[in-house]
């Protein structure tokens, strides 16, 4: 009578409350005494609907969730490595030191946070990346499109045109073979601007709504390789009486962004403000949005002034060493500090 083997007994036992079901459906099941999936194994939809009072359609859906809930395939780390190496791995910035520190540029498929005090060049870096992501593959670029979510009204078209012109000019100088010559015919300031999808969000509600709709937009535009939110901090630093609600919303949003980055092979760039944390008599500048937010981005980049020099520091990354590099912002965009070393 007890001769059921271990694995199959375990397979049967899963609490109904752990299934991704509608709350009312779940309540019906539990009130009918069904608490574990073991009770749902050899039941027909008809029987289930008469036992619980669910409609036959709902009962069928429940049974489908139970049987498909045992899925999900793993990938070996080897396969992931191959994917990381093959696919357009990263977006080359026009700052070679930053590229080196990030081992080839801003990684696609990961989330990156850029934080810094006002005037350190967060928006400039975002605009630069919006142009960089479009560099054709034959020049070592990704050749993608970009969705730019602007929450502060700082998207300056004039700046983008400047940067785009500089990028086009730069690539024109590099042309060596026919493939690159052909690519150059479609790489102009106009095409660059037409490949930027700008979304303006005025408060956090609009931002959340936009992010919910974004997966559909992305599947219609499979060439999008970069999502910029400039800034994430602004809509979330106001209108919140209860900080725990903000944390919860941010955590949920994080998981959405990570899923998008992974599934659509997208680089996600978020900008964040800095805030002052008081500890006793000491005060310290730290990124805003709280302690738990800091876990969200895979890579965190801090832009800051050190005297008259501009420094960018990687202070969190699962694939790179912490390092600090120097950069400058010129009329062409985000560049190496030393003009002679430009790529």
């Amino acid at each position: 009578m007890f001769g059921v083997n271990l694995a199959s007994t375990l397979k049967m036992q899963r609490s109904v409350s752990s299934l991704n079901l509608n709350l009312s459906v779940r309540a019906r099941l539990i009130s009918a005494g069904i608490q574990s999936t073991r009770d749902l194994l050899h039941v027909s939809p008809k029987q289930l609907s008469s036992e619980t009072g669910l409609s036959q359609q709902e009962a069928l859906e429940v049974l489908q969730v139970v049987s498909t809930g045992l899925g999900g395939a793993s990938i070996s780390a080897l396969e992931l490595l191959q994917r990381e190496e093959e696919e357009p791995k990263s977006i080359v910035t026009f700052c070679s030191q930053l590229d080196t520190a990030l081992a080839g540029g801003l990684p696609v498929g990961k989330t990156t946070e850029v934080c810094g005090t006002p005037g350190t060049g967060k928006t400039q870096l975002c605009l630069q990346l919006a142009v960089d992501v479009q560099v054709p593959p034959c020049f070592g670029g990704v050749g993608g499109q970009v969705v730019f979510i602007d929450t502060e009204g700082t998207f300056l078209l004039q700046r983008v045109t400047d940067m785009a012109a500089a990028a086009v000019q730069h690539c024109a100088l590099l042309v060596e073979d026919d493939e690159q010559r052909v690519a150059m015919t479609t790489f102009s300031v106009e095409t660059i601007l037409s490949n930027i999808f700008l979304v303006c969000c005025h408060d956090y509600l609009e931002l959340l709504a936009e992010l919910h709709l974004l997966p559909d937009f992305l599947s219609e535009h499979p060439r999008v390789r970069l999502l910029v939110i400039d800034s994430l901090a602004f809509p979330f630093r106001q209108h919140f009486d209860e900080l725990s609600q903000r944390t919860r919303l941010l955590n949920g949003l994080t998981q959405q962004l990570i899923a998008m980055a992974t599934n659509q092979n997208l680089a996600v760039v978020l900008t964040n403000h800095m805030t002052t944390r008081l500890q006793g008599s000491k005060s310290q500048l730290v990124p805003a949005l709280g302690e738990s937010w800091g876990h969200a981005p895979t890579i965190r980049l801090l832009l800051q002034w050190a005297g008259s020099r501009r420094l960018a520091a990687i202070f969190k990354s699962s694939g790179h060493m912490d390092s600090t590099i120097q950069y400058q912002i010129t009329s062409e965009g985000f560049r190496d500090a030393d003009q002679l070393e430009q790529p």
């Binding site: 899963r14 299934l19 045992l70 999900g72 990938i75 070996s76 780390a77 490595l81 899923a259």
Partner: peptide, 26 residues
């Protein structure tokens, strides 16, 4: 060595539960 590391990439709690239950179930 890399082949012996099996990676699941899941981003919500139901996917995590599905994965853990299916691992436990064989």
């Amino acid at each position: 060595a890399l082949q012996r590391i099996h990676v699941f990439r899941l981003f919500d709690v139901y996917a995590l539960l599905d994965c853990l239950y299916s691992l436990r179930g064989g």
